[in-house]
Design a protein around this nucleic acid. Structure first.
Lengths: 191, 191
DNA sequence: GACAATCTAGACAGATCTGTCTGGTATTGT
DNA sequence: ACAATACCAGACAGATCTGTCTAGATTGTC
């Protein structure tokens, strides 16, 4: 096995196929057969690697979480200096996701398809807890008197923008969202 | 048939059962058999009344739309005098939906379960167009210089609050949402 | 009381889904 | 070279779902 042509493992191809299909078409409507067909992998291989469809879904969500988190934190650090700039910068970065093919937040759609109390809720909770903590932490760092409230309010705007970009197929919603976020931040921290 | 004990038609019992089950457990996971069992109705009756599960879902969504719209417009008129009061009053009324058993916006969850381009998207579009028009119209009536932007921003907050109340099982989110809405309105229209 | 319309109960067909199993092939480490 | 491992192709079982159909019961109307 040369360094150049590293063979992608079956597990990795499965995860890639699952990510594309589950996100684009929904977890419930995409069957195992579709996943293994796109991955170019036998069914037994999937079940030996993940054990069940549920477990594949769980790993798919976890990877989404890690990828979103890594990307957001990296871009925030690369582009902005202060906590205050980052608070509104989150919305700029969010807006760059609103490209054709954007299908909404994977955790919202997955939760809508799953029963409450399932592992999907656990994964969603973790993702949302991270994002809320990011907002609240930056609000605190920026000197907000009540960082909890400001963080929650910005989180509302963030989710609302995601919903609108998805359900209304309207990427331009990022602009009013950024303006509202700036207004909230300025008003709370002092212009 | 006396005036008092009006027998509820099979169609109506089916719609009631469908509303409860589809909303609480999801459209995909609830089968026809569950619906007719709760409605106390034979399967053939369902298919003679609606023709297909899809049609039952469509009527379920339409009834949700009509019910939400009627309730919101009625309570806004009963409780508030001015357009400006109504702009923030929408969030007060929204918060009263955040009771135990609240499962999020029916159109969001239905859309998450359905493929893009289906009739579910059409029904969701109509509902969301009504709500956005309500916000924008009130913003215009209240004298906003840019009612379109203010309306869209409040719509973002509204959706975000719904998402948080559902996914975080956190009814208290209505408070920061109302405060943010008031701040946006005051800042846009002048304190 | 007869007739027509509506309803009920449930079997059934056909499709689809998850997960298991068999049997054969390719790849890898030693 | 050889054994162990990983992988492929696909049949298969068992469950579940939508929608149709048969046959009998109930209801309202004249």
């Amino acid at each position: 096995m040369t360094i150049e042509s590293v063979k992608v493992s079956a597990r990795e191809r499965l995860l890639r196929a699952a990510d594309e299909l589950f996100y684009e078409e929904g977890i419930h409507t995409v069957g195992i057969d579709r996943v293994i067909e796109r991955a170019g992998v036998a069914k037994a291989t999937l079940y030996s690697a993940f054990g069940s469809k549920d477990e594949l879904v769980r790993v798919y969500l976890r990877e989404r979480h890690l990828h979103n988190q890594e990307r957001m934190e990296r871009l925030l650090n690369e582009r902005f200096e202060t906590a205050r700039e980052r608070l509104t910068g989150i919305f700029e970065i969010e807006g760059e996701n609103f490209v054709p093919g954007f299908k909404g937040c994977a955790f919202m759609t997955a939760s809508a398809e799953s029963s409450p109390g399932s592992f999907v809720q656990d994964e969603s909770d973790e993702f949302r807890a991270w994002l809320l903590a990011l907002f609240v932490g930056l609000a605190r760092e920026a000197g907000a008197r009540d960082p909890e409230t400001l963080g929650r309010q910005l989180h509302l705007l963030y989710d609302g923008a995601s919903i609108a970009a998805w359900m209304d197929r309207d990427a331009s919603v990022s602009t009013p969202a950024q303006r509202a976020a700036r207004l909230l931040v300025d008003e709370t921290l002092g212009g």
